[in-house]
Amino acid sequence: MKMTKVFQAFLMLQPQLVDLIHEMQPDCIVSDVFYPWTSDVAAELRIPRLAFNGSSFFSYCAEQCIKEHKPHLEVESNNEKFKLPGLPDVIEMVRSELPSWITRHKPDGFSQLLDVIRESEKRCYGMLMNRFHELEASYEEHLNKIIGIKTWIIGPVSLLANNEIEDKESRGGNPNIQTTNLLQWLNEKEPNSVLYINFGSLIQMSRNQITEIAHAIQESSQSFIWVIKKNDEDNDDDIVNKGLQKGFEERMSRTKKGLIIKGWAPQLMILEHKVLEGF
């Protein structure tokens, strides 16, 4: 539901942005991939459009491979492995790892939007990628030469913003988060010893998923920070009711093994801390 509202908001901006672009008469349009209609505006004005893609070369190439070759339809079960043909490396997957917008029989609104996005990208002058060459050189070459889309690498863009500790603490901030206490907790840990768990702002976790993650964390004895998203109507008790066992949070806090943050977290500050081992 939240994801649908985000995309509806993108579309609601279109008339105002179209008017602004025509008024400004730019020489080029740089727009996020989720604004596919800007390709049409660029064509009207006879100027290039560059689409910004915050994902990776690898995921883009893998998605194109699956959509073109459909290797997941050649296996008989969700757990049978199939290979993604034509990629620089031998990549194997199972059907259960694919997103629902690929596997469902009838297209939904999101899959239709992605089709529109991919079609608009073909009409772009090229794409700006939030990556760097040393990380994905072979997939950068694959996207340019095999798929045939020009790309320019401009990442990682996170290095260009929020350099001050105050910015990292407060970006999109939640007044309920005491960053001083969080930093103290992090500073008490050994380097490369903490796992950061966060599935993003758009993912809706089920009660069973939260329960299973909590069991896994407890069994692993791994130090962790776990960010659990709250819906607008949720309070702390709702989070427990959604799957956290009673007493789990208190046990983790008492043993200083884990820290649970409900809602927003200063993610940039956490990820840059020396104690982080994995995300």
Rank of each mutant, 00 (worst) to 15 (best):
M129V: 14
A214C: 04
W185I: 06
K256Q: 14
A51E: 05
L114W: 01
M24Q: 14
W185Q: 05
D236T: 09
N235H: 12
V41D: 12
M3A: 13
G263N: 00
I225F: 02
Q178K: 13
A42V: 11
K83F: 09
A51Q: 05
V90K: 12
R254M: 14
I102T: 09
G148V: 03
A9M: 06
A137W: 00
V94N: 12
D232T: 11
E233K: 15
E44C: 14
Y125S: 11
T179D: 05
Q245D: 15
V33A: 03
S253I: 08
G258E: 03
L20S: 06
V6R: 07
D232A: 13
E212R: 10
D237E: 14
M129G: 02
N53L: 15
M93Q: 05
F248N: 04
S77N: 11
M3Q: 10
H69N: 13
L202W: 09
F10G: 08
V41A: 10
Y125K: 14
I261R: 00
D232C: 12
E44T: 14
F110Y: 15
Q209K: 02
R104Q: 15
E23L: 14
W264C: 00
I210V: 11
M269C: 01
G126R: 09
I217A: 04
D238Q: 05
L183A: 00
M12Q: 10
L195Y: 09
M12V: 06
E76C: 05
E44Y: 15
H133Y: 06
N198A: 11
E233F: 09
E97C: 12
T180R: 13
T38D: 08
D27A: 07
A216Q: 04
F110K: 03
P36S: 03
E68T: 15
F57C: 09
N174L: 01
F132P: 00
T180W: 10
E166Y: 02
D32Y: 00
I197Q: 02
N53A: 15
Q8A: 08
N235V: 10
L244N: 07
R46S: 15
T211W: 10
E169S: 14
E164V: 05
V194H: 07
N192G: 07
N163C: 02
K70R: 10
I149F: 02
R46T: 15
V18H: 07
K256C: 11
Q25N: 11
E169H: 10
P107H: 11
L50N: 03
N198F: 11
F248L: 09
Y125L: 15
K106T: 15
L13M: 14
S59D: 07
S193L: 05
S59M: 05
I228T: 00
L11P: 06
Q184L: 12
L259D: 01
P266N: 07
S56M: 01
I239Y: 01
G109H: 09
K246H: 13
Q184Y: 05
G278K: 04
P175N: 06
F34A: 08
